[in-house]
Simulated assay, not measured.
Amino acid sequence: MDKVLSFHQGRLPLLISMPHAGLGLTDAVRDGLVHQARSLPDTDWHIPRLYDFARELGASVVAAEYSRFVIDLNRPDDDKPLYVGATTGLYPATLFDGEPLFNEGKAPSSAERASYLEQIWRPYHGTIRRELDRLRAEFGYALLWDAHSIRSLIPHLFDGKLPDFNLGTFNGASCDPELAERLQGVCGDAQGYSHVLNGRFKGGHITRHYGDPANNIHAVQLELAQSTYMEEVEPFHYREDLAQPTQKVLRRLLEATLQWGKERYGR
């Protein structure tokens, strides 16, 4: 297996995770995809570029190199469903619009998928675990920001148009409510943008599994509508005119997260 993730260690108690930014495919997945899946339409497009200020800010960053079509890093290893209704699993079988992901009889074998779990999923989650433990040991607490994006209109997954900023804290279980309230305030002050807390997207496996406020680990997922920074149709171009103001809001959200941590823990 080639390089499965990129990791940068920062200087502040914040880790940003980008589990769906990868574009890599294994031969078995590439050979089996239906035609409409070959452009990787369900990718969290351009997320590393959108958050390119994070290193300068002082955050640690971990990003996937392989596509979610190989294995979904934001699903539990036992593949238990996270949401009621339409969703995708650890090994996606459908596109977001509900159509099959693989040609009939062309999905990767169980042995191939077992190798993806061991060689892609486990290293990614091991990196998250080690970095959160390091941050908590050094600072007394750790902040986890799970960075996602999605098309703003997907009738198969949700009704109507998605709000621009979709904050998820697993209904308040993954972070201190004061942090969630502060983040809502930042979104509310961002003119021209809509937001929601624990709406359609409440946080996936990463937020739910690692968020542990009682032990001083606070996790938030942001599902960002792609209409705020890019063209949502193929070839999925990045739109600098849209992205620049959106980046300013993202930066304020991360700065607010770090400031809350300083005030809460004194460092």
Rank of each mutant, 00 (worst) to 15 (best):
G58N: 03
G58W: 11
E65M: 15
F53T: 01
V61S: 07
S60N: 01
R30W: 00
G85P: 02
H46V: 07
L33G: 03
A21R: 00
V62M: 08
L15P: 01
L15I: 08
D78F: 04
P81L: 14
P41N: 07
L23P: 00
Q36L: 10
F7G: 00
K80H: 13
A64S: 15
V70C: 15
Y66W: 13
F69L: 14
G85M: 11
V29A: 13
T87L: 09
D52R: 10
A86H: 13
G32P: 03
A64K: 11
V34S: 06
L40R: 11
Q36M: 10
Y66K: 06
I71K: 07
Y51V: 06
N74Q: 04
P41Q: 08
N74A: 06
R49E: 06
R49W: 10
T88R: 15
G10D: 01
L82G: 14
R38F: 02
H20I: 05
E65F: 14
S60Y: 02
L40Q: 12
L50K: 04
S6G: 15
R49M: 03
A54H: 00
H8C: 10
P81F: 13
H8N: 12
A63Q: 13
Y83F: 13
R68H: 12
S60M: 02
S6K: 14
R55L: 15
G10Q: 02
G22H: 10
Y66A: 07
L12Q: 10
R68C: 14
K80F: 08
E56C: 02
V61E: 10
D52A: 06
L23E: 12
P41S: 06
D72P: 07
I71L: 09
H20K: 03
H8S: 14
D31F: 08
L14Y: 09
R38H: 03
W45L: 05
G24S: 04
I47L: 15
L50N: 03
R55C: 05
D52L: 01
L14A: 03
P13K: 04
L5N: 01
T43H: 13
H8D: 12
V29W: 13
E65I: 12
A54I: 02
D78W: 09
A37V: 07
P76L: 10
D42T: 04
L33M: 07
T43G: 00
S67K: 08
T88S: 14
R49K: 10
G32S: 09
E56M: 01
A28E: 14
D78P: 00
H46S: 08
I16M: 11
D78N: 14
S67Q: 09
V34R: 15
A21S: 15
T26L: 05
L57H: 02
L73N: 08
D72F: 15
A37E: 04
D31Y: 06
I71R: 09
K80V: 13
S67N: 08
K80C: 12
P48R: 03
V84F: 12
S67D: 07
P48H: 01
V84I: 11
G58D: 03
T26S: 15
Y66L: 13
L57E: 00
D77L: 15
G22V: 03
R49I: 00
H20R: 05
D27K: 13
L73W: 04
V70I: 10
A59S: 06
A54Y: 00
M18Q: 12
D79Y: 10
S17D: 09
A86T: 11
A86W: 05
A63T: 14
Q9S: 12
S39D: 12
I16F: 14
P41L: 04
E65Y: 11
T43F: 05
D42K: 08
